[in-house]
């Protein structure tokens, strides 16, 4: 088991290394010169050279990449002498736009994205698993058809469309909710809740749709298994048969999916955050892409990669705990 974990960690590190190398390479070769961008309109060639050498942009590719990576682990110093700027580890550089530390920018916005992800995850698990179970158990009835129709809508309607629709209905038409604005939980819990409710609903809708379909299929498959017949032959009551014998085989595969989806979402919900004006990592990513703010894009990409790698690892470990057949093989 230890050996297995170690191997997974090493594999994860390799993946992150490749992601970083790849994104770095794209910026190095394919994007316009950042020094020109930073220098702005009133610019002289000397000034550009100066910026270049300060940021290390005049160095060859591998050396630049090395500086970037070592910055993450041990921090780095830009420039020399009196004008030198130090950037403590984990250093992801400074935004070309605002000159802020990328690490700080991400750290500032993480709580928003985490709130969005956690709230949405709770909702979509409840709705997805609950809906899937309901329609599997009531297969072929009105319940089933209703849930599956909802799921079809959730899958086929794009996220931003649902967001705008919801906003139109709840805010403009019914006026149940104020127009979303950021609020802190400690100062005004109600406003906080109102600000996050719509993003949660929008995100949860799409995922719940997918999950309810998957759960439904899994439960129906499980119900047809011979061991379900055995459970009934023992005279267990129906709810125990469902809870113990049907649920675990049906939900175990969902764990994998959930781990990946949740990890991905922690790295920011691009569209939803933008639509609802939430200052999360997703919005940061969207902004930095439109402004070609390379250090920020790099930082956000690496964060997303890291989260997915960790999520994947957690899922695999959880899976070996959940499925005894896998457990023994990896032991």
């Amino acid at each position: 088991m230890l050996f297995y974990l170690l191997r997974r960690v090493l594999a994860g590190i390799l993946v992150l290394f490749l992601i970083s190398l790849f994104t770095f390479a794209i910026f190095f070769w394919l994007s316009p010169d950042p020094a020109v961008q930073i220098c702005g309109k009133t610019c002289t060639p000397e000034r550009i050279d100066q910026i270049r050498s300060q940021l290390g942009l005049d160095l060859p590719f591998l050396q630049q990449y090395w500086q970037f990576v070592s910055g993450i682990f041990v921090g780095r110093t830009y420039g020399e002498g009196a004008g030198a700027i130090t950037c403590a580890a984990p250093c992801l550089g400074f935004s070309f736009q605002t000159n802020q530390s990328v690490t700080d920018m991400i750290a500032d916005r993480m709580p928003v994205s985490v709130t969005v992800a956690v709230g949405a995850a709770v909702l979509w698990l409840l709705a997805g698993v609950g809906g899937g179970l309901l329609s599997a158990v009531k297969q072929g009835t009105g319940w089933d058809r209703t849930v599956m129709f909802g799921a079809l809508a959730g899958i086929s309607l794009p996220n931003y469309f649902v967001a705008l629709l919801l906003q139109y209905v709840l805010v403009v038409q019914l006026q149940w909710l104020p127009f979303p604005h950021a609020a802190s939980f400690t100062e005004d819990p109600v406003a906080w809740f109102q600000a996050y409710l719509m993003p949660w609903l929008v995100l949860a809708f799409g995922y719940a749709a997918m999950y309810s379909r998957i759960v439904r299929t899994n439960v129906i498959d499980t119900l047809g298994q011979n061991f379900m017949r055995t459970a009934r032959a023992k005279g267990l009551d129906q709810s125990l048969v469902m809870r113990r014998h049907a649920l675990r085989p049906s939900l175990t595969p969902v764990v994998t999916l959930f781990g990946m989806d949740f990890a991905g979402l922690l790295g920011g919900a691009l569209i939803t955050e933008t639509v609802f004006g939430l200052n999360g990592v997703g919005k940061l990513a969207a902004d930095s892409i439109t402004k070609n703010d390379q250090p920020v894009i790099m930082g956000v990409t690496l964060l997303a990669g890291l989260l997915v790698v960790i999520g994947n690892m957690v899922v695999d470990v959880a899976y070996t705990g959940l499925d005894p057949r896998v457990r023994v093989r990896s032991a």
Binding site: F227, L236, P249
Partner: peptide
């Protein structure tokens, strides 16, 4: 349900698939 398992028990034909792997 009251009868199954208690008054009538059954040994199924295909034991592997008749036992819950979890």
């Amino acid at each position: 349900r009251r009868i199954r398992g208690d008054r009538i028990a059954m040994v199924f034909q295909d034991p592997l698939s008749s036992l819950n792997p979890y």
